[in-house]
């Protein structure tokens, strides 16, 4: 289980990284998802461009309205509260249950989004928080909502040569309520179902975001509307089923039971928060 050969360069600046990312080159940050894929020879690259230490990607900042997290901020830094949390603790609590500490110490939020695993935690969280990614590329910079950046299973709109630099994440309203729920085969495993619920976020619509069901983390539109409308549990269940029918190719009965239960659990936690 050793990767095929590749070259490696540690970029000294974002500019140098962008210049190095030509054909068949891949950016490498924490490596916690990419290196296993390379080792299994399920992915390959001519060149890895190490961007994990770049200042531009390591910086975080905050205004009253927005928190900006560098893409190379690690899961552990979020867990430990070393960077601001726009979700009033939501991101810390998600980080705490993401894989294992030794993985969290190296893995980055940007890497997680770029990998676009349909069961991953950060895409669901960032979609729920309405985050926007700032992306640098050979033709300059662009911004795109995370919900649009991730297009499909393991697929983003990133083109070769582009790097996620940071995420701009609107702060939740002080009165917002959040909840998460995750069902895993075991502690630290990828989610079978993961839900982030954000309610009462000022004048923003409620967001119930589900990962592990469809081809990417998505806001459950009907469910979110039903929650906002204060519908009863039966109506909520129907809404989740309707959303799942749109999200999955023919969800089986178990998928409906599982994801419905996880949605309800996340909602209950949000209401308690």
């Amino acid at each position: 289980m050793k990767p095929a050969p590749f070259d490696y360069v540690r970029a000294k600046s974002l500019g140098e990284a962008l210049a190095a990312l030509g054909d068949d080159a891949m950016p490498l940050a924490g490596g916690q998802s990419l290196l296993p894929l390379l080792g299994l020879r399920m992915a390959s690259a001519r060149l890895l461009v190490d961007i994990g230490h770049l200042d531009e990607l390591r910086q975080s900042s905050a205004t009253d309205a927005t928190v900006t997290l560098g893409a190379a901020v690690t899961h552990a830094e979020i867990e430990d509260g070393r960077v601001p949390d726009p979700g009033h603790g939501l991101m810390r609590s998600i980080a705490r249950k993401l894989a294992y500490r030794a993985v969290r110490n190296q893995g980055t939020i940007g890497g997680s989004v770029a990998m676009a695993d349909p069961a991953a935690d950060w895409p669901a969280c960032l979609v729920a928080l309405g985050a926007t990614a700032r992306i640098a590329g050979p033709d300059g910079e662009r911004r795109v909502a995370v919900t649009d950046l991730i297009e499909d299973i393991y697929t983003t709109s990133l083109v070769p040569g582009e790097i996620i630099v940071s995420f701009d994440i609107p702060r939740l309203h002080a009165a917002a309520k959040t909840g998460t729920a995750k069902v895993m085969r075991k502690t630290g495993a990828f989610a079978m179902s993961f839900v982030v619920a954000v309610l009462h976020d000022g004048d923003q619509a409620d967001r119930i975001v589900l990962a592990g069901a469809g081809r990417r983390a998505e806001r459950l539109a009907e469910t979110s509307d039903a929650v906002a409308a204060g519908m009863d549990e039966a109506a909520l269940r129907a809404a989740v089923a309707a959303d799942l029918a749109g999200l999955m190719d023919a969800p089986d009965d178990y998928a409906v039971r599982l994801h419905t239960a996880v949605v309800l659990r996340a909602l209950a936690e949000a209401r308690r928060s």
Binding site: P36, A102, V103, N105
Partner: peptide, 27 residues
Amino acid sequence: CEHGVCGACTIEVDGKATRACLILAVM
């Protein structure tokens, strides 16, 4: 396991517990 799950290779890098199988020596 060489894919970051079993933890047998855990070491410290800059004082942080790290999977030695999931970090290149050059990194």
